[in-house]
Simulated scan of single mutants.
Amino acid sequence: MNTQSLPLPTSFALTLRGYDRDQVDEYLAETRDELRLLALDRDAALAEAETLARRLEAARTENDRLRVRLDRLVGTPADPAAVGDRVRRMLELARTEADAIVTTARRRADAILEQAAAVERRTAARLRAIDDFLAHAEHLLAEEPEPMAPGKHLAAA
């Protein structure tokens, strides 16, 4: 989330002796709520990144398995002279089909890899923006004035 899109007031209304306490309290409450939402968004982005990492690993494993299978099929071709025309034709069709399956699997694996990489990049950018906002908000909250005793207002002090 971009911190520039948040409605952060640049100043608070001045009262007789200081800032309007209700306005400051409301601002701090809104900031805390926004922090909670950002933390939830960050956690969801991390979970999504973990899911995509698992999918990516599964795609890589499947791709490796298919490569081993293809190498085994290509590495041990049947001798066409030892078989009849009908069997030779069946072998050619099987090879063609196997090549098509491997090509499709490679394309699917590449597409999954590209999608996972793009989502991971977007997730990393979102997490950096959230971290920047949280750091800024924590800084603002650290500057929060000490709470006054009940019943006392800045204007009455």
Rank of each mutant, 00 (worst) to 15 (best):
residue 140 L to R: 07
residue 88 R to N: 07
residue 51 T to M: 06
residue 123 T to G: 15
residue 53 A to I: 00
residue 120 E to K: 00
residue 72 R to W: 07
residue 77 P to W: 06
residue 6 L to C: 05
residue 14 L to A: 09
residue 78 A to H: 07
residue 102 V to G: 00
residue 68 V to Q: 11
residue 13 A to F: 04
residue 83 V to W: 03
residue 68 V to H: 10
residue 59 A to D: 09
residue 104 T to G: 10
residue 29 A to L: 07
residue 45 A to T: 12
residue 89 R to K: 15
residue 69 R to L: 02
residue 60 R to M: 10
residue 133 F to S: 07
residue 93 L to D: 10
residue 5 S to W: 04
residue 93 L to P: 01
residue 1 M to P: 06
residue 22 D to P: 13
residue 32 R to P: 04
residue 3 T to W: 01
residue 137 A to P: 01
residue 86 R to Q: 10
residue 108 R to V: 14
residue 136 H to C: 01
residue 90 M to F: 11
residue 113 L to A: 14
residue 154 L to C: 10
residue 154 L to Q: 15
residue 145 P to E: 14
residue 154 L to Y: 11
residue 117 A to L: 01
residue 115 Q to G: 05
residue 3 T to Q: 07
residue 43 D to C: 15
residue 94 A to H: 11
residue 14 L to M: 02
residue 142 A to P: 01
residue 27 Y to Q: 01
residue 94 A to C: 14
residue 30 E to S: 03
residue 56 L to K: 03
residue 94 A to N: 14
residue 144 E to N: 04
residue 23 Q to C: 10
residue 62 E to W: 03
residue 17 R to M: 11
residue 94 A to R: 15
residue 62 E to M: 14
residue 2 N to C: 07
residue 49 A to I: 02
residue 53 A to L: 01
residue 135 A to V: 11
residue 133 F to M: 05
residue 14 L to D: 04
residue 36 R to C: 08
residue 92 E to W: 02
residue 24 V to T: 12
residue 29 A to C: 03
residue 21 R to E: 15
residue 56 L to A: 06
residue 103 T to R: 12
residue 25 D to L: 04
residue 128 R to V: 07
residue 80 P to L: 15
residue 41 D to N: 09
residue 112 I to G: 04
residue 54 R to C: 04
residue 92 E to M: 13
residue 138 E to C: 12
residue 149 A to P: 03
residue 119 V to T: 05
residue 108 R to Q: 14
residue 100 A to G: 14
residue 22 D to R: 15
residue 155 A to H: 04
residue 79 D to A: 13
residue 46 L to Y: 03
residue 8 L to P: 00
residue 95 R to A: 12
residue 75 G to F: 02
residue 1 M to S: 11
residue 97 E to M: 06
residue 113 L to C: 13
residue 121 R to L: 01
residue 26 E to D: 02
residue 3 T to S: 09
residue 127 L to T: 09
residue 82 A to L: 13
residue 125 A to L: 11
residue 80 P to H: 10
residue 59 A to H: 13
residue 62 E to C: 11
residue 44 A to H: 07
residue 75 G to N: 09
residue 115 Q to Y: 00
residue 133 F to C: 05
residue 107 R to M: 12
residue 32 R to I: 12
residue 128 R to M: 05
residue 149 A to Q: 05
residue 155 A to W: 01
residue 54 R to N: 05
residue 142 A to D: 15
residue 95 R to T: 12
residue 76 T to I: 02
residue 66 L to K: 00
residue 47 A to I: 05
residue 111 A to F: 04
